[in-house]
Design a protein around this nucleic acid. Structure first.
Lengths: 232, 232
DNA sequence: GTATGTTTAAAACACTTGTTTGAATTGACC
DNA sequence: GGTCAATTCAAACAAGTGTTTTAAACATAC
C-alpha cells in the first residue's frame, strides 16, 4: 500500500507535461513528490522504465474507456461511418484530461515520443500490450471505409495520429495563441470536437478522383482545374 | 569564407535529425564536424542559438521556394482551390529533402519544437522573420476557403500542421514500419503526395452541416472500386 | 617585419545528470 | 521483544553537459 510509488507517478506525470521528458530530471520529480531521490530507482529501476510506467498507466485507462465506447458503438448500430468511429475517441480523451490536469496532453506527448523513437522500443511495448483494443479500433475504421486498401489505410491512420498528437500534446501552447488572438477560452474538448469532423472528412475522401470531393464542396467551384499539377 | 561555421551547421543538422536536439551534445557535433569544441560557442554563442541558426537556414530555403511556388500559382490561375494551395508545399519540402539527407525531417522537427515550446521563443522568431511569406500562404488558403471564419481557420491550419510535422519529422520511423509491413520502399515525396489530397479534403469539409460531406462520401457505394492508389 | 584582429587549440570550469551505495528506519510476523 | 525483509535516507559516484579561459596560430594590413 506504499503510496511512494503513486506519488512519484503523479509528480512525474505533471512535470512531464510541463517540461517534457529529457528536460525533467529525477531530482525535480522526487522533490515535487516529496520522496527521496533514490526511491525512483528503487521502485522503477530507471528513469526510462518510469516513463514507461507513466505511459502504461495512461494507456490502460485510455484503452479501457475506448473499449467501452466501441462496445457502445457496435451495439447500437451495425452501419459504421468514419465519423462515428472517430467519435469513440472523444470520451476517452476528455476523461483523461479531467482525471488529471493536462492528462490528454501528457498522454499524447508519450504517444508522440513512442513513435518518434527510431528504435521503436516504446511503440513495440504499446502494440504488444494493447494490441487487441488497438486492432479493434483500426478494424472498425477499416469497416467504415472498406474501399481503402491497407497501405492507404496505414498512412491515413498516421496522418490522423499526427494531428491528434500535435494538437493535444501541444494544446497548451495553442490555447495560449488562440486565446490571445480571439479573446476566448478554449477547452480541450472543444478542440477534439473540431478535430473529429475535420479528420472524418479527410479520412473519407476519395483519393482517385478528387473532383468528387470538389463537387460536394460548397466553396467556389473551379471548372478550370489548376490542381492536379503533381510533379513526380 | 571560414568553412568552420558551415561544417558545424551541417554536422548539427545531420545529428539533430538522428537524435533530436537535447540528445545531441556539442561534443558530438564538433567531433562529427571535425572542429574544436569551443568553436561552436565562438561562432554561435550558445547551443540554443546554434539550433536557431540551423532552423533559420532551413526556414530561409523553405520560404524562398514556397514564395516561388505561390508566385507560380497566382500567376497561372485566379481561382484558388485548397488543393492547389497545399500543393505549393510539395516542391519546397521535397527540395529540402534532396538538398540534405533527411532535410525535410529535420526541418519539421525544428518546426515542431518551435511550437511545442510553451514559452514560444522560437515560434515568435519565425513569425517575425518570415511573416510575409507565412501570411501570404495563409491568405491564399483563406481565399480558397472564404466560408471559414478566422477561428475555424486557425484550428484547421494547426491540425494540418500537426499531420505534416508528425509524419515528416518521424517519417524515418514510419518508413521503417511501412517497409517492413508492405515490403515496399516509400519516399518522402510519396508521403507528401498522399498527405496533400488528404489534408485538402479535410480543409475543404463543410463543418456546419457535415451531412453534406456524408452524402458525397463514396464509402459503401458499390460503383466505386478500390480507390486511393495515388502513387504518382 | 611588425602589429592587429580573427580564428583555432587544449584544458579546465562549474554544474547537472542518472545511478549506486551502505547505513538507518520501518513494519509485520513469530 | 526479536527477526527479518522491505523501504527510506543522505551521501557519494562516475559520466556527461554547456561554457569559459588562456595561449597559440593564422591571416591581413601597414
Amino acid at each position: 500500500m506504499s503510496t511512494t510509488k503513486d506519488k512519484i507517478l503523479n509528480a512525474a506525470e505533471r512535470l512531464f507535461a510541463d517540461h517534457g521528458f529529457s528536460e525533467t530530471s529525477l531530482r525535480m520529480i522526487t522533490a515535487s513528490a516529496e520522496v527521496n531521490l533514490a526511491s525512483v530507482n528503487y521502485h522503477f529501476g530507471s528513469k526510462k522504465t518510469l516513463i514507461q510506467a507513466v505511459f502504461d498507466r495512461f494507456m490502460g485507462r485510455f484503452t479501457n474507456e475506448l473499449s467501452v465506447e466501441m462496445d457502445r458503438l457496435t451495439a447500437i448500430s451495425d452501419v459504421l461511418t468514419v465519423r462515428s468511429v472517430l467519435e469513440t475517441l472523444v470520451r476517452p480523451l476528455t476523461l483523461l484530461e479531467q482525471l488529471r490536469p493536462h492528462g490528454a496532453g501528457v498522454f499524447m506527448n508519450l504517444l508522440g515520443r513512442a513513435y518518434a523513437e527510431t528504435q521503436g522500443h516504446m511503440r513495440r511495448f504499446a502494440l504488444e500490450h494493447y494490441s487487441d483494443v488497438l486492432h479493434r479500433f483500426t478494424d472498425l475504421l477499416h469497416k467504415a471505409s472498406p474501399h481503402l486498401h491497407q497501405q492507404e489505410m496505414f498512412w491515413r491512420l498516421h496522418f490522423m495520429l499526427g494531428s491528434f498528437i500535435f494538437t493535444l500534446a501541444g494544446h497548451r501552447a495553442l490555447k495560449e495563441i488562440s486565446e490571445s488572438d480571439f479573446k476566448q477560452t478554449v477547452s480541450i474538448e472543444q478542440i477534439i470536437n473540431r478535430l473529429v469532423p475535420f479528420m472524418s472528412a479527410a479520412f473519407s475522401h476519395d483519393a482517385v478522383n478528387q473532383d468528387n470531393i470538389a463537387d460536394c464542396n460548397l466553396q467556389n467551384k473551379p471548372t478550370t482545374q489548376s490542381a492536379g499539377d503533381v510533379r513526380s
